[in-house]
Amino acid sequence: MRRTLMLPLASLLLVPAFISCGGDEIPTTPPPAATEPADILYHLQYLAVRKDYKHVTLIAPITPDVVFPSARQMHMDAKALGLTLTPEELKGLGIDEKLAAKLDALPGGPDAVNFPDYTVKEARLAYNAGIYRLTKGLTAKSWGKMRHMGIVDNTAARQFGAQTIVKDMSLGFDGNKILSVSCLKKPDGTYGVSFMRYLVSLQGLKQ
């Protein structure tokens, strides 16, 4: 899978409740399945701040062609950014000690020689953990300020099938694009996260 793919309104009654967090709004209840790429922002805010670890499965694709390479790249990026997972977070995300030891050096696909026990099931768990791990790069206050800053078609995704739809969404605050999120349209018509990457250095980011 090419990196370009990885880099990758609910009705009024379904709009998630919000509370103020230092003047910023964060969902307090799980958002419904994302019917549009823009909805993914609310899922990331909820996941990052409310730490509802099981919720990540709602926005995570499960096909091997996505989870294997993207899990590897997201954890590599998170490691480079100095983002780690606590024992409590690992447990909540379903990551046991054996898999936790592999996260910073995962293969991009099944590896029966060096990773004989790295199954599709484990890759999905690692993928989910990768999404959450990257959200830790921003504080709760920053997540509250995050806004949509553009959504474009990822045309490279069409090489994986005419029906493959990926939208690259930029998120940011204070006029700066902070995060790129590739949103994959799943078979059920809802959207999930196929990849995430930071567009700025976290060390120099004023949060």
Rank of each mutant, 00 (worst) to 15 (best):
Met74Gln: 13
Leu58Ser: 13
Ile95Phe: 07
Ala60Gly: 04
Lys136Asp: 01
Pro187Gly: 06
Lys177Val: 04
Pro69Val: 09
Ser194Trp: 00
Glu89Ile: 10
Phe18Lys: 12
Val113Ile: 15
Lys177Gly: 01
Gln45Ser: 08
Leu12Tyr: 09
Leu125Phe: 03
Phe115Ser: 12
Tyr191Phe: 15
Leu99Ser: 07
Leu90Gln: 15
Leu7Arg: 15
Leu205Pro: 08
Ala100Asn: 11
Gly150Phe: 02
Glu36His: 11
Arg197Lys: 12
Gln203Ile: 02
Asn154His: 00
Ala10Trp: 15
Asp104Val: 10
Ala38Leu: 08
Asn154Arg: 01
Met169Trp: 00
Leu13Gly: 01
Met76Ser: 10
Ala10Ser: 12
Ala100Arg: 09
Tyr42Gln: 14
Thr135Arg: 06
Ala129Gly: 10
Pro31Glu: 04
Glu25Thr: 00
Val66Gln: 11
Ser170Asp: 14
Phe18Trp: 05
Gly175Ala: 06
Arg72Ile: 00
Leu5Asp: 13
Thr4Gly: 04
Ala105Asp: 13
Lys121Asp: 15
Glu122Phe: 04
Glu97Asp: 15
Lys102His: 07
Ser182Trp: 00
Phe68Val: 09
Phe173Arg: 14
Phe68Ala: 08
Ala38Pro: 01
Asp111Gln: 01
Leu99Arg: 07
Met169Ser: 12
Glu97His: 07
Gly109Cys: 07
Asp111Pro: 00
Gln159His: 04
Ala34His: 03
Asp39Trp: 05
Ala34Glu: 06
Tyr42His: 14
Glu89Arg: 07
Leu134Cys: 08
Pro27His: 01
Glu88Pro: 00
Val67His: 03
Thr29Met: 00
Gly204Leu: 07
Lys177Cys: 02
Phe68Lys: 06
Pro61Phe: 09
Ala100Glu: 10
Glu36Val: 07
Ala156Trp: 00
Val15Phe: 06
Met169Thr: 14
Ala80Arg: 14
Met196Thr: 12
Leu5Gln: 06
Ser20Gly: 01
Ile59Arg: 03
Cys21Met: 01
Val67Phe: 04
Leu205His: 09
Ser182Cys: 00
Thr84Arg: 10
Leu13Trp: 03
Phe115His: 15
Glu97Arg: 14
Ala33Pro: 04
Thr119Phe: 09
Thr63Gln: 15
Lys91Ala: 14
Glu36Lys: 11
Ala156Ile: 02
Val49Gln: 03
Arg3Trp: 09
Lys121Tyr: 12
